[in-house]
Each structure stands twice: as structure tokens, then as C-alpha cells.
């Protein structure tokens, strides 16, 4: 856990653009909170590999969101039931249900649709907020920490160096 935090702090302190990190974390949110073996996750992986998105941030956040998914599944299930049984959407669902492509997405599963719609809705706000938070971290928290005696001591400490080297 400490290693993950250290790694995450390193990512935040890296030279990667904040948008790359926030995109990585947002995509991890989609993959982590929705069932892994779903067709939409193939698209996410394609985006992740094709565009310059921070993979380390993605992988670190994926672990976090995968754990979180177990807690949120009941909510996604309820939300999915609401969506799939909504009168106004019934025609659309029926149409999609009769399409091979959409059936492959497993959209008619309550957790798939609940979690996917939730994460897609949250995606852009999440990216924007994370982006702002990373920027603020770098300008305020990171600069303060770098200047602090504790940080200097930790950087010079052989124990911390050894620990981080072991962790890597």
C-alpha cells in the first residue's frame, strides 16, 4: 500500500502532463468499476495504448477502482435496473437487444449498464477535476514538500532510498 502511494506520488511528481495523468485515472475508473470482460473495455484499452495517456496512473488507479467496484456494485445494479426498465428507454433497449453488436456489449446486464453509464457520466467532470487537483498539487503541495526539511531528510535518507529501490 505504501509502495502504491509512493508510486502514485512519483507519478504526480513526474513530468507527465496533468491531463495525461487524469485521463489515465479516468479510464481506470471505467475499466475498474465496470465488469472487466466487456466489449467497451477493449475500446478503453485501445484509447489507452494509442494516445499518450499515463499508463502508470492508469494501472495504479485500476487497482483502487477495482476494489471500490465491490462496494459500488449494489448501486450500479439498482441504477442499471432503473435504466433498463425505464419506459421511455424500452424501445431503444429492445432495438439494441436485437442487434448482434449491442448484445455483445452485454448492455442488458444491470451492472454493466449501471456502471458504464455512471462512469461515462462521471468521466469528463472527473477528468477536469482531477486535472485541476493535479495542477494544484504540483504548484502548492509538491513545491512546499520539496522545500521542507522533512523532504530533504527523506531524500537523503539511505533507509528510504533502499526501501524505494526494493519496492521498484
Amino acid at each position: 500500500m505504501i509502495t502504491q502511494i509512493i508510486k502514485f506520488l512519483r507519478v504526480l511528481a513526474s513530468e507527465a502532463a496533468p491531463i495525461q495523468i487524469s485521463m489515465g485515472i479516468a479510464l481506470a475508473m471505467i475499466v475498474g468499476l465496470t465488469p472487466l470482460l466487456s466489449l467497451h473495455n477493449l475500446l478503453v484499452v485501445f484509447v489507452l495504448l494509442t494516445f499518450r495517456i499515463n499508463l502508470a496512473a492508469f494501472l495504479l488507479a485500476l487497482g483502487l477502482f477495482s476494489g471500490l467496484a465491490y462496494l459500488l456494485d449494489p448501486l450500479f445494479h439498482s441504477f442499471g435496473v432503473t435504466l433498463l426498465q425505464h419506459e421511455s428507454l424500452h424501445a431503444a433497449w429492445t432495438s439494441m437487444y436485437n442487434s448482434t453488436f449491442w448484445r455483445l456489449t452485454h448492455f442488458n446486464n444491470t451492472i454493466v449498464i449501471g456502471s458504464l453509464v455512471s462512469t461515462l457520466l462521471a468521466f469528463i467532470p472527473f477528468v477536469l477535476i482531477t486535472n485541476v487537483l493535479i495542477k494544484r498539487y504540483r504548484t502548492h503541495v509538491l513545491v512546499y514538500l520539496q522545500r521542507s526539511k522533512l523532504a530533504n531528510w527523506l531524500q537523503s535518507s539511505k533507509l528510504v532510498t533502499r526501501f524505494t529501490s526494493l519496492s521498484e
Binding site: Y70, D73, H77, Q85, N98, N109, T110, I111, V112
Partner: peptide, 9 residues
């Protein structure tokens, strides 16, 4: 439960 329910149309 963690895998949800498949709704049939």
C-alpha cells in the same frame, strides 16, 4: 449479485 442481472427484451 456482483454480476448483476440480465434483462431480457
Amino acid at each position: 449479485r456482483s454480476k448483476g442481472r440480465d434483462v431480457v427484451f
